[in-house]
């Protein structure tokens, strides 16, 4: 364990019966880093988090979290982390303060120190003045912030957030993420899973999980450069509406993929193909407006899923793998 790694994961695996939910995943997370974990439903994100939090024993492999091994000392791990589970995890019938008193007490805080921490944390998550509100009466966004408060009350060095913004409106999401960034800049390591690609852009590094494996891990820019290396163009106008527009564009040398986007089309080109915008416009029967576009993490996600599917297909063709 190097001093600048908050989390070190080594070939971590978890099976449920014959099914492998997490398959030999390895990575490190630096101190104060915001580490994003992306993946489809059932990819194994929550299972990974639950192992890292000491809630679920790994079947094989191991991880060191905040200096403690999850396989041998899950209790030590628990003392040094905060965790916000994917499911709503507050007592709805209790007041905000009562919920925080319980979780603070469970983490071993008591007396005046606990009261001070509750006041500070409520301030920090922007819930000053809501201490006496019944939790069930709060809107979803505020409840998520109460849950976050419960997870950081004891000032953990690492916070695990499992889809913290699921089902929350965009304004509340933005607010939540500015809290996460504040926490990280104060030195807290953040491990966060999400389905929202725009949120993944906020992360220093992103791991992409596909069917229990972690085939891609890099900064958002690095991922884009690796998985969506060529130029991208958006085409709008009458020419893009032609029935055979897709086929015509795919016929242009260097174009590898064409997808509809809004009212127009989006063409992805191979790396080093140096396809020009005019060439695409010329291929269409009517006038179009062509604009260069930038890669998104969604492109990366689709490319990685594609590559994984191909790799598995190839493995099967050779009679190996699963």
């Amino acid at each position: 364990m190097t001093p600048d790694h908050a989390i070190e994961v080594d070939a971590l695996s978890r099976r449920f019966g014959a099914f492998t939910a997490v398959d030999a995943v390895s990575f490190d997370v630096g101190r104060g880093e915001i580490f994003g974990y992306l993946g489809a439903n059932g990819a194994g994100k929550s299972t990974t988090i639950r192992m890292l939090c000491g809630l679920l024993a790994p079947t094989s492999g191991d991880a060191v979290v905040a200096g403690a091994r999850v396989s041998t000392s899950p209790e030590a791990v628990k003392r040094n982390i905060g965790y916000m589970s994917q499911r709503f995890s507050l007592y709805p019938e209790l007041k905000v303060r009562e919920n925080l008193e319980f979780f603070g007490g469970a983490y071993g805080l008591f007396g005046r120190h606990l009261n001070t921490r509750i006041a500070e944390t409520l301030d920090r998550v922007g819930l000053h003045g809501h201490a006496e509100d019944r939790t069930s009466s709060l809107p979803g966004g505020m409840r998520q912030r109460v849950a976050l408060a419960g997870a950081i009350l004891h000032e953990p060095g690492i916070v695990f957030l499992d889809e913290p913004t699921a089902g929350v409106d965009p304004v509340a999401r933005r607010r939540f993420w500015s809290l996460i960034r504040e926490l990280a800049s104060a030195g807290t390591t953040i491990f966060v899973t999400t389905h929202y690609m725009d949120e993944a852009e906020y992360c220093a590094r992103v791991g992409l999980m596909v069917a229990g494996r972690l085939p891609a891990l890099d900064t958002p820019e690095g991922l884009k450069a690796t998985y969506v290396p060529g130029d991208l163009f958006v085409l709008r106008g009458p020419g893009a509406h032609a029935d055979d527009a897709r086929a015509r564009l795919l016929a242009v040398p260097g174009v590898v993929d064409v997808a509809t986007m809004g009212a127009g089309l989006r063409a992805r080109c191979a790396a080093d193909a140096h396809v020009r915008g005019d060439a695409l416009a010329a291929a269409l029967p009517a006038e179009v407006e062509v604009e260069p576009d930038t890669a998104s993490l969604e492109d990366v996600f689709l490319a990685v899923v594609d590559a994984e599917a191909q790799a598995r297909g190839a493995a099967r063709a050779f009679g190996e793998g699963d």
Partner: peptide, 10 residues
């Protein structure tokens, strides 16, 4: 779902 939140505390 609160049991999970309780179990992650020490």
């Amino acid at each position: 779902g609160t049991l999970e939140a309780v179990r992650v505390t020490p």
